[in-house]
Structure formats: C-alpha cells, structure tokens
Design a binder for these strands. Sequence first.
DNA 1: GTCTCACATTACATCGTTGTAATAGGGAGG
DNA 2: CCTCCCTATTACAACGATGTAATGTGAGAC
Lengths: 333, 333
Amino acid sequence: MRATVKDVARRAGVSPKTVSNVMNGIVPVSGPTRLRVEQAMAELDYVPNLSARGLRNGRSGVIGLALPDLATPFSAEIAQSIVEVAHEQGFSVQIEETGSDPHRERELMTRARANLIDGLILNPVVLKESAVQVGVALPPVVLLGEVTQQLADRVFVDSFAAARDMTLALARTGRRRIAVLGVNRGRQSATAIQRAGGYEAALQMLGIAKDKSLLISCDRWTPASAAESLDKYLDANPVPEALFCFTDSMAIGALNTLWKRGVRVPDDIAVAGFDDVIDGRFAVPSLTTVSFDKRAIATEALRLLIERMSDRSHGQRLVEIAYSIVERDSSRG
Amino acid sequence: MRATVKDVARRAGVSPKTVSNVMNGIVPVSGPTRLRVEQAMAELDYVPNLSARGLRNGRSGVIGLALPDLATPFSAEIAQSIVEVAHEQGFSVQIEETGSDPHRERELMTRARANLIDGLILNPVVLKESAVQVGVALPPVVLLGEVTQQLADRVFVDSFAAARDMTLALARTGRRRIAVLGVNRGRQSATAIQRAGGYEAALQMLGIAKDKSLLISCDRWTPASAAESLDKYLDANPVPEALFCFTDSMAIGALNTLWKRGVRVPDDIAVAGFDDVIDGRFAVPSLTTVSFDKRAIATEALRLLIERMSDRSHGQRLVEIAYSIVERDSSRG
DNA sequence: GTCTCACATTACATCGTTGTAATAGGGAGG
DNA sequence: CCTCCCTATTACAACGATGTAATGTGAGAC
C-alpha cells in the first residue's frame, strides 16, 4: 500500500498539514520538524498523490499538446521542445492527435478541461467554422501557427513573409518557373493560404505572371502524398525550374520522386521546404528551407499559457517568432 | 463556474449518486430518470472532473510513454501508434523524454505513480544497473525493445536475428567488407549489443573474418552524429563495400555524408538502416531497412499494460514482433 | 513572575466523485 | 388489505491533499 500524508505524519509525529507544509514550503516549518518529516517521507518512499492534489488545487500540472499528425518529424521536434520546456516549468505533457479534423480540434479546445489538463497548446489546421461559440468559456489555450480566426493567444511564424522571401530567394538563382507544392484541393488550411499568398506576392514583386499550372496540390502534407502528387504532376507537365514545398516533409517526398525520375537537384530544378526539420538537413541534396527556432516557439507558447492559466484577464496576445531562409544544396545556383 | 455532479443532480431533481450511475452505467437507472439526468448534463455542459474521479477510483486513465529522444522520426511514429491505440482503449498518453539517461529511466519507472499515470511504456536504452531494487513495488510497466535485464513485460523485435539477416542480405549482393555504424564508445546500449551481435554472427556464417576497423562508433543515434562519425571515419579509412546503420536516422545522416563526399550509393557502397521510418522510404536513394509493424508494437504494448494494470499476478511476459528485410534502392546489387 | 505577541502547529472542512449500506417505492401474492 | 420482496434511489463516507481558522508554545518585556 502506498504511503499518504497521514502515514508520513504519523511516523514523524506531526499532523498531516505539517507534512503538507514541508512539501509546499509556503507556510514556514521549524528546522527540526522539517527534518523529521523529510526523513519520514524518505523512509516511507512517500510520493504525493497528484489526483488528490489536483482535486484540491484545481490544477493538475499537466498541459495538453495537440498536433495534426504525430508521425511527422516536425511534430516530433515541436513535441520535444515543448516537453523539455514544460518540464523545466514543472509541467507534464499529454499529447493528442487531431488528424487535421476540425471537429476534433473543437472538441479538444472546448473539452480540454475534461482531459485532466490545465491548458492546451494546439496546432490547428482548420479551426474556422466558429470553433467556439462566443460566450462558452475556453480553457487556457495557445495556438501554434496560422489560423483563419483569432480565437486565443498565438505563437506563430510569419508564413506569408517567409514564403515570399523563399520564393524571392529561389528567383535570385535565376529561376522563373517556380512551382509550389502543398496547395490543398478542398478546404484550404490557414497555413496553405498564407504560404501560397506569400508565394504569389513574390511573383508579383518579380513581375512574373501567375501560372495556375504551377500550383501543385497535395491534400495530405506527408512525404508519400507529396511524392505521389509530384509524380502525377510531372507525368503531365514539364519540369519547373524551382519547387517550393510548403513543408520539409513534402520536400523530402519530392526529392525522392525527382531522383527516381532522374531529374537532377539543383541542376535541373531547385527545391525548397519549410520548417527546417533535422532530416531535411541530411536530405540528398541537403534541403534549402525556412528555419525558425522551435525551442523559442515552445518557450513562448508555455509562457503565454502559464500566464493565461494564472490570470484570465489579458486580451488575446500574439507572439511572432523570427524566421530565416537557409540556403542549402537543393537550391544552389 | 464549472458544473459538478451536484449541480446536475439538483437540476434533474435527483441525487448526485444517480447522476454518477447514469454516467457509469453499472448500476441500473430507470428510463425517465436517465433522460432527465442526460438532459441536465447537456444543459449545464457538464464535464466530469477527472482529478476527482482519479482520486476516488485510484486510476487516472493516463499512461506514460517514455522515449530516449523525442525528436527522432522513430519516436514520432511510435508515439503516434501508441496514442491512437491508447485512445481506442480510453486512455490518454503523457510523454516523457529520458535522454538515454539511466537515472531518468529509473526515476520514471519507480516514480511513475507520482506522475498521475496508471502505467508506463518505456523504451529503455541502458537500464541495467539494478534499475530496481527487488522488493520495491513497480507500477505497471511495459518495456519496448532490448534490455540487459528482464525487469518487466516487454515487446520487442529480435534485433539480433534482424541484424544478422540484414547483414546476410547485404552480403548477398556480393559485398564482403561490410561496416556497421552505431557501436557506442562508452557504455553499450542493449540494442547496440544485439545488433552488433547479429552482424558478427552473420559474418561468421559467411566465413568473413572480423575486422575491428569496420566498426564505426557513434555515440548519439542521430543523423548529425552519424554524419560526422562517418565523415571522420572516411577521412582515415577506405570506403567499405556496405554500411549497416543501426537506425534509419543514422543511415539518413550517413547518406548525406556519402553524397557530400561523392561516394555513390549503391554503386560504391550499399547502405541499410533499421526501423523503416517514413523518411527512410523517401531518402535518396530510398533506404533498405529492417521493417516491422509499429502499430502492432503499440497494440501489444497496450494489451500487456492493460492486463498488468488490472491484474498484477502474471509473470513477466514477452511479445515478439515479426520483422522483415525490405530491400530498396540503397542496397541494389 | 506574569503578560504579550509572534510564530509554529493543529483540527476541521473541503475539492468532485463513487462504493456501501440503508431507504423508499411499488407491484405481486396471500 | 396487508405483507413481502425486488428494484430504483438516496445518505453518507471516503479517496488524499491543503486552505482556513483556531490553538498551542516559546521568547521577550515589564
């Protein structure tokens, strides 16, 4: 049987509350008493019951992290950062997968409190259809990335500007027929809209006419889907001079297809991604990408979330994370 | 303020316990009463307090998943499978990172109960130094992969046999100078020992003399570390005919180094990995690897864990997951 | 030697849910 | 019409930790 405060108290010859005081350190405890209690805790291998503490305090010390696709390296890297930063702040992390399902995104936001979590960090994909009836109190939520409606605190990279800059960078190597991969066929994700917008803005700045045949759609943002989409595209279209993929994962899939078809990168086509995922750095050829500090995202997201959890009064806040264009071998002039 | 059973009960004109009965469905509730209660729950947007339930029931509905390095694609894919299977079984998943730190592995195993979790799925790296004093009651634990000491239920792939078969497969293309990448310099991980053992067994079967200069060490099992280790190795040694990396992540790093040095794969050297990670399928060239069903690992791990959580009596059980050698472009003869 | 006052410690109640044991209600059988 | 019994429902306590308010204890001042 597991030891409780009561057991520790009995063994130390004090009251349960004193044991609690020793643990929490808010109420002062005299030196000798503290020692006796600490020794009793050690002897009994006492571990506090977090359910009980959570019930009493109304806080569980757990935050939720909800990502669209847990299998991607990007998710993995974000999760790692969040877990590490959360741990530093004394929080555990519960992970959820939304599968890009707007219904599940809504459910997690509104039902977060059921899940034993104090707050939620959510990387939404759609989340527009009035995800939240105004008036329903939301649990503390921080969104990661782009959204179509501002519903909560948010940490983001300026996808529009980054996509624009990346497109300009690709053009700087003299290429003009620049394709993008990642446009969705059906409902556009907020991220896709931003990145496509940045791309188009760049074309306009460059005086390059829009060409719809350079928009390659790809419904799932996975290597497999990207590889297949690009393969089909190249069956019917000439090879563009450059290819800007909306994520590194898609770029990795694209590189494979290009290699299989004998299209040389970057000689025949420049390729770029977005996210600066580890595997992109080691792709063949190493992948040009939009880089940003994932640890900073985690730090900021947690900061916002913790502030929100302790004080509901702030308005909605935005934190922008800097990005940079990292040119690697896949786009060398 | 959030609604409780008491509020629902008042609104439905019944006692709190009846509301509980409606939710849990063990104790029968008459039709009309059930309807009134359900309506009241809906009207109040009632969500049960899981801390309270956890306190009362002694079970939180949360399991822990501890992996050495959350940033790897392998971790991501395992996490995805575990989360999905756990969700089907009504469990949430809390993730932890051990950073290959044996101390942290121990801590998670022994302290699991503090973390608000009912059980733990742990992918250990070291875990040998009497991780657990015999006699200290462990929380329900299922281990993933190889261990040096059998401490708990375990789900694993036969790394020894798989490594042996992979080595044989590489040899079948006529190559004899087969190197391995992933040997650790300091304390060997259980996994490294198994895979190195399988490799050596294959060499013996093939009548190839051991050659220590073909063991390339690499302390961290990451692409960066692998790329660097291999680069240094090739500065001082001739190019082997084949390279068996102990994980796909390392193989991806190796492919990058080989490409940078102008060593052609598979013409000059065959490369193989282990884990069948998504990004390996789309590597350039696509990566030969040891494949196994990650969903099956998740299913079995959860089955063992759930059985262990409900009944502590079973002895230690082992579940072996089948593997297969998948030959892709990186090792074509 | 007595009286304060400050501080350490304690008793009690409470967080929300659910098992246990007791109660109420209603129909069947005598 | 009364008793009995079965089922639906209820009252109460308990899970373990901690805030509140009250109590106890000591030193210091007169």
